[in-house]
Structure formats: C-alpha cells, structure tokens
Design a protein around this nucleic acid. Structure first.
Length: 309
DNA sequence: GTCCAGGACTCGC
DNA sequence: GCGAGTCATGGA
C-alpha cells in the first residue's frame, strides 16, 4: 500500500458526508462508515487505480489519508491528488458562505445542523453527465441501480489484494460501443439508452470537447450542451454543479429542490421554477451550496433524523 | 391500486 | 408558447 495525506479545508464533516451517502448511494463507493473509510477506483490517465480514502483528524482539522494498491509516478500522484481534492471539495472556504446563509433564519438552521457538509463531486465530466442523464426523472435508488448495472456491463474491473472486485466507471469509448439493445435489459428506457450512447459517441468523435467547458461561463455551457438531444437545462446545471464544482448553480426545476424549499420555508405548496429563481437571487454567488443544504434537509427527513430548531 | 421520484421530448392546439 | 402524454421502475 502506497500512502500519503491530503489536508482538507475546515470545516469538513465526515459524519455528514457518510450520512449523505446513506440517502445518496454511489455504486462506485465501498463505504465503511465505522472506519470513516471509502474505497473506489479513480482513473489516473486511463489507468484505473484502486484507492482507499480514510478521513482522520476532526471537523476543524480534517485530513484525508489516501492509499493506493499500485505504485504511482510523481506525475500520476499529482493527478490523483488533484482529482481527489476536486471530488471531495477540499478547497472551498465555507465560512463566508455560512455568513451569508445566516442572514435568513430558515437557512441559519441548516448551517448549524449541517456544518461542514460539502458536495462530493464527480471525478470527471463524462461520468458526471452519464450519471445525471441516468438520474433524470427517476428516484435516487433506482438511478443508483441503473448506474451499477452500467458499471457491471461496461466498466473496467480492478481486483484488490484480497481478491475483491471493483469497477471503474466505463470510458466514453466503452459506452460508445454499446447498442441500445444492450441497455434495455438493464431497465434503461429506450430514450435514456439512446441519450447516453449518443452522448458517448459525441465525445468519442469529437463533436463535444469536454475539456473546453472549463473555460466557459455557466450559461455558455448550458447553451452548448442543451443542443444535444436528451440534455436539458436541469442536466447541464447538474453537470456544472456536481461535475465541474461551479458554485452558483440553482436547478430551479428540480423536484427535490422544490420539495426542499417547501420544507425549509414551511410552505403549503411547492414553489415553481420562476418563484425559486426569484428566491435564489439573494443566494448569489453561492447558489450551489444553498441548493446542497436545502436538498440535505430532505435527505435528513428521509433518514428520519430528528428535526429540532 | 395510486402517486411520486433530484426530466426531456413530442405532439396538438 | 403551453399543457398532456410517454417513458420504466420502486417505494410509500
């Protein structure tokens, strides 16, 4: 085992991260909550590397202890560290965001309750988009099942030292080689299978260049990608938030966010997209973090956490 | 059985 | 431009 440490920006709540994973299962993660331990495969270059991630320290002095089963060159290790810092949102300063959130009593409650909660981002933009398309319309549990089945069908297998098998997320090339008929038996709808395969082929043939997105403004990315069939505004907003880590996204049409706002503000009805965008104006430029904390209020209810104020 | 899930597309008006 | 229907499954 090759080990090293990555310091994280405080506050960082491992407890909240693991609780969130209960309601937001990730098929790529092996979770050992009792040890604050995660294991998954990251791609370094194109090479799948099995990685263990143990959270040590505390909410105010958080450190990630990283181990890989295979040896890495200095360059590979730098790339893996960059990926991990991105995935675990290691560099975001939450304090000014909390200060702003506390201006609203309904949100100050969330800051107190979820202090140190950060988004887990996707490790690359291809898988972020595929997972988001899979998640369109269906519940999170079913979405995780479909993602797991796609991993089993087209992912790359990595075996650890004890012979336990892990799957790396399929490459765009592997998904581009699939046919709709391969995904239908996995309970992908006809259209969803088409969207995912078409998207993978657009990546492989160069119609879409994901690396160019990093230089674009949020709305440019929306305009650029919604031109593709099966990719609407919600999907690109999720890509920007979960895949790219952009801080100011508000997926106002999202059913979970609508439920969350209704819950947090104790409304009798679900606000519509227009109302949410109007409310969100005062949350700029941190609307992604507001969204996360509002979503998590719904997650806490699903987990039957006791809600006290 | 019914309704809703962290949507998007197509069609008819 | 806007509403209704469609897709597919699982959990409440």
């Amino acid at each position: 085992m090759h080990a090293f440490q990555i310091p994280l920006m405080p506050p960082y709540s491992f407890e909240r991260l693991f609780q969130r994973l209960q309601t937001h299962p990730d098929p790529q993660l092996e979770v050992q909550a009792e040890n604050n331990l995660l294991r998954r495969v990251f791609r370094v270059g194109s090479r799948p590397v099995l990685t263990s991630l143990q959270f040590v320290g505390s909410i105010d002095q958080p450190v990630l202890q990283v181990g890989t089963t295979s040896a890495l060159s200095a360059e590979e290790r730098d790339e893996l560290v960059r990926t991990i810092r991105h995935v675990f949102c290691a560099d975001l300063d939450l304090l000014p965001i909390y200060e702003q959130m506390q201006e609203e009593a309904e949100l100050a409650v969330l800051v107190k309750r979820f202090r140190g909660l950060r988004l887990m981002h996707d490790s690359d933009l291809f898988q972020s988009m595929v997972k988001t398309i899979i998640g369109q319309q269906i519940n999170l549990t079913f979405a995780a099942n479909l993602t797991q089945r796609l991993l089993a069908l087209a992912g790359d297998e990595v075996v650890d030292e004890r012979g336990v098998k892990f799957l790396a997320f399929p490459t765009a090339e592997a998904v581009a080689r699939l046919a709709v008929e391969d995904l239908r038996p996995l309970q992908f709808s006809q259209r969803k299978a088409e969207y995912i395969i078409d998207y993978a082929r657009a990546i492989v043939d160069g119609t879409v260049e994901l690396e160019r997105l990093w230089a674009m403004e949020d709305e440019e990315v929306v305009a650029h990608l919604t031109a593709l069939r099966g990719i609407g505004r919600w999907t690109v907003e999720c890509l920007l938030m979960f895949g790219m880590g952009r801080p100011n996204l508000l997926p106002a049409a999202d059913i979970g966010l609508r439920n969350g706002i209704s819950l947090v503000y104790k409304l009798d009805t679900k606000p519509d997209e227009k109302e949410i965008r109007r409310m969100g104006e005062r949350w700029e430029p941190w609307r992604s973090i507001y969204s996360l904390y509002i979503w998590e209020a719904v997650g806490a209810v699903k987990r039957k956490e006791v809600w006290e104020e």
